[in-house]
Amino acid sequence: MTTLPQTTERKLGLVIDLDTCVGCHACVISCKGWNTENYGAPLSDTDAYGGDPSGTFLNRVHSYEVQPEAGAAQLIHFPKSCLHCEDAPCVTVCPTGASYKRVEDGIVLVNETDCIGCGLCAWACPYGAREMDAVEKVMKKCTLCVDRIYNENLPEEDREPACVRTCPAGARHFGDFADPDSNVSKLTAERGGMELMPEQGTKPVNRYLPPRPKDTIETDQIDILAPYLAPVAEEATGFLGWLDKTLEKL
């Protein structure tokens, strides 16, 4: 259904820690693997071994450079998949009702058998979270691994998205934002989890933890640190004298 639910019982989503993501693309490929084999049509690739390879992925890792006013430029790896917006424009534009937001957990899904492949939902999504599959001609997007998180054929500990399970750096967290005590809610609160493009009014559920301040070793701490390097003696011989004295005390 194309109209959005007023509220959802839970608000499932991801927290992505930009301070920790090393940009390894593990989440990209595990997502591709799981979703090729599971929900809906396989994620196809065209010209797979040719001059212009292109394929459907539900999660992509960008990278950005940030140049602060003073100091060295920084580099941030930036994974991006569907943010399962509360006010998801991709849902409301869909003419067929193929795109919908689940009332029980807020997951935004495409019912592929209803999708006419008009592409409008991808136009409406500001985040580039939807990709039309070139072979199957239906819209593909992150399912938040809806077929893993409740899957009774998986051991309990594996009932989380494939990308979260695989992330080597532990930069991806999955949980319920409607529950203030969940890990994701707490991380968001503690670390100032941010929304992407808040001005678009989509109210994304997923949050990004900003990188911590960088390159502070010298500027912020030099006064505290300086005493640690106070010389024990100026001369090498003085050093040996100090050595002797200190050894006595050991």
Partner: peptide, 24 residues
């Protein structure tokens, strides 16, 4: 605003997530 990284300085896109093209 797209990246939320603006508070740290000026933001520039570096390497894209894939060298080839895609639907987007």
């Amino acid at each position: 605003t797209a990246t939320g990284l603006g508070t740290g300085g000026s933001v520039r896109a570096f390497e894209p997530p894939h060298t080839g093209t895609n639907y987007l």
